[in-house]
Design a protein around this nucleic acid. Structure first.
Length: 590
DNA sequence: GCCGTTTTCGGCCCGACTGTTTTCAGTCG
């Protein structure tokens, strides 16, 4: 069962409680909803945590839910949940998936219209067209119209399940910002929410505007040419639109003198804000997007720094605002000094077009083009790391010859390039039994080796763990490429015992890659945090197959920051002399 | 149902917008 499915199940339980008696079950409902949010946010599969007996490391999962989830993973069902859900019409849970329909509306429609589970949506549509909804108490003509639009979106699959990768979210936000800034009433405009926190995928785009004329800005926003539908348009503070692409954009506005409070509020995360507000309450302060109320009097804040200071905390970097210990760390003046893009001294996974006849994709760009780009990015050094020559198509001797020819090319480039030093690497397949695709007498021709899994993803957890550990123990291997193998929105990562891998990394001084390519972002932030806590070294690379992709480094840095990494955790923040010493370390077992 | 640097019991964030309801409930973030 995936995290999404588990979250959905918990929302069904929460929805059932709301229908049954919202007041009586108020805090259970909140607990279930919080757990569902938390599980959806988690960057690790719950099933993996369950395997390790660490379910309660997810905030919002306590003793009771741990027991229920234990039952779920063991038997595929939870009796307690089924007891709560079974007395309610099944169509209710279908309708809850439609935007604008909550549990109470869904219950009313499902029972009064006697909707079946199978045809819930189409029967509801039919009832609306026959004007049988507007006569229900609490509904009217307008609610029929809104329902139809929401059903339309639902049928097109434009629900929130479809999360965007960061580059797309940034591109959409930039377009909206350019449009917003055309209006003179806009003093400042910033993308906030999960985009500002650089979460690996983004649901809605959130944008804040500072203005002294909210009505005008909201009107301008709602008239955005790419808006297909206006979901909401308030008089004083907010608006929401759906673009023709189906993506939702939310706007919040605030006067300039309160903009600090809005930046804080709208950046989130929700959990961070709730925890911050609970802390503030203990100090007699009530926080909101307008400012801070003390003794009933509102104080406004222009900047986020001032806002946090008023709560008694230093400013907290957006990437770690997830209520996973950052508020406590801030209170103790113990926040990590997070790595920045300027700390990165060289990208170490780049595929050139050198004709090495590889096992996987060759790059598009020449070594010379890569060096030029490295220079413009102000790198001290850069690593060439094509895939190993295909083993099935070459003899051992042919492979050695190919590597020697590549070495000659690298040596020639080294003579002519003094600005950027070259690290001579290769990305080598870890084959199913844990051996590397190339033999050591080939590997010794290189400065170091990246070991990566590219095949046999469906191995068992223990087989995969042993496979990776075996590869890491090869003395020429310096780091593990895209360690979990995940592809965002396409493929789950493979399962492995990360604690075991961490201890091997420490013992033999190996690093784990944070692959910055936006479809990967692998290691995931959750595992970066665990690696950092275990003093395991990391390396951030773009895995570029074209020079243009070398600019994607900032996405990897964001993942590192979300995992609380400082520059001391990242080996490619070292200067060349230290880095080349590190890459030449040869620890392992033959 | 969760959680703890004043607590293992007694608390639990704060607000906007919409539609229909004449005072507010439901949904959303």
């Amino acid at each position: 069962m995936t995290n999404r499915e588990i979250a959905l199940l918990l929302r069904k339980v929460a929805g059932s409680y709301i229908v049954k008696d919202e007041k009586k079950f108020h805090f259970q409902i909140r607990a279930y909803q919080k757990a569902a949010d938390s599980i959806e946010n988690a960057t690790i599969e719950l099933k993996d945590l369950w395997d390790e007996g660490k379910l309660n490391s997810i905030p919002g999962i306590g003793a009771s839910l741990t027991a229920h989830l234990d039952e779920l993973f063991k038997t595929g069902r939870v009796k307690h949940f089924e007891d709560i859900i079974k007395s309610l019409p099944k169509a209710l849970f279908i309708l809850m998936g439609i935007s604008g329909i909550g549990p109470k509306t869904a219950y009313k429609l499902a029972t009064i219209l006697k909707l079946s589970e199978k045809n819930a949506v189409s029967d509801l549509e039919k009832a609306i067209s026959q004007h049988r909804v507007r006569i229900i108490e609490g509904f009217g003509e307008k609610s029929e119209e809104e329902l139809l639009k929401s059903i339309d979106d639902y049928k097109k699959g434009q629900t929130k399940e479809n999360r965007m990768l960061l580059p797309l979210a940034i591109a959409i936000a930039q377009e909206v910002l350019i449009y917003l800034r055309q209006n003179k009433a806009v003093i400042r405009a910033d993308p906030l929410g999960s985009l500002r926190r650089m979460v690996t995928t983004v649901g809605d785009i959130d944008i804040a505007v500072a203005t002294e004329n909210p009505k005008e800005v909201i009107e301008h926003f709602a008239n955005y040419p790419h808006a297909k539908r206006v979901l909401g348009k308030g008089e004083l503070a907010s608006s929401r639109i759906i673009l023709s692409s189906g993506r939702q954009v939310d706007l919040l506005v605030q006067s300039e003198k309160s903009y600090g409070a809005l930046l804080q509020h709208f950046t989130g995360s929700k959990f961070h804000n709730i925890a911050l507000r609970e802390l503030a309450l203990k100090k007699g302060l009530s926080l909101s997007e307008y400012g801070i109320k003390k003794d009933g009097k509102l104080i406004e804040y222009r900047t986020e720094e001032d806002f946090y200071r008023a709560v008694g905390l230093p400013w907290i970097p957006p990437e770690i605002r997830e209520d996973t210990g950052e508020i406590e760390a801030a209170a103790n003046e113990n926040l990590p000094n997070l790595v920045t893009i300027k700390d990165i001294k060289g990208d170490q996974q780049i595929h050139s077009d050198f004709p090495i006849e590889p096992s996987h994709d060759l790059g598009n760009s020449s070594m010379e083009e890569i060096l030029n780009m490295a220079k413009s990015l102000k790198y001290e050094y850069v690593g060439f790391s094509e895939h190993n020559p295909s083993v099935s198509k070459h003899t051992d001797k042919q492979i050695i010859d190919l590597l020697k020819r590549r070495n000659e090319k690298v040596e020639k480039l080294r003579l002519n390039n003094k600005d950027v030093r070259i690290i001579n690497l290769l990305e080598v397949d870890i084959i199913a039994n844990g051996d590397l695709a190339l033999k050591n007498d080939a590997l010794k021709l290189l400065d170091g080796v990246i070991a990566s899994v590219h095949t046999g993803f469906d191995q068992s957890r223990s087989d995969m763990t042993n496979r990776i550990i075996n590869a890491l123990k090869n003395p020429y291997v310096r780091f593990l490429g895209h360690p979990t193998g995940r592809l965002l929105n396409q493929r789950e990562g493979y399962e492995a015992d990360w604690d075991a891998i961490f201890s091997v990394c420490k013992e033999f001084d190996k690093a784990l890659e944070i692959n910055a390519y936006p479809d990967r972002l692998d290691l995931p932030d959750f595992l970066v945090r665990k690696a950092v806590e275990n003093n395991v070294k990391l390396i951030i690379n773009t895995d570029s197959h074209d020079v243009s992709q070398m600019t994607l480094m900032s996405y990897g840095v964001a993942v590192a920051r979300r995992g609380w990494a400082t520059k001391h955790d990242i080996v490619n923040t070292m200067g060349y002399n230290d880095f080349i010493k590190w890459i030449h370390i040869r620890k392992g077992v033959i």
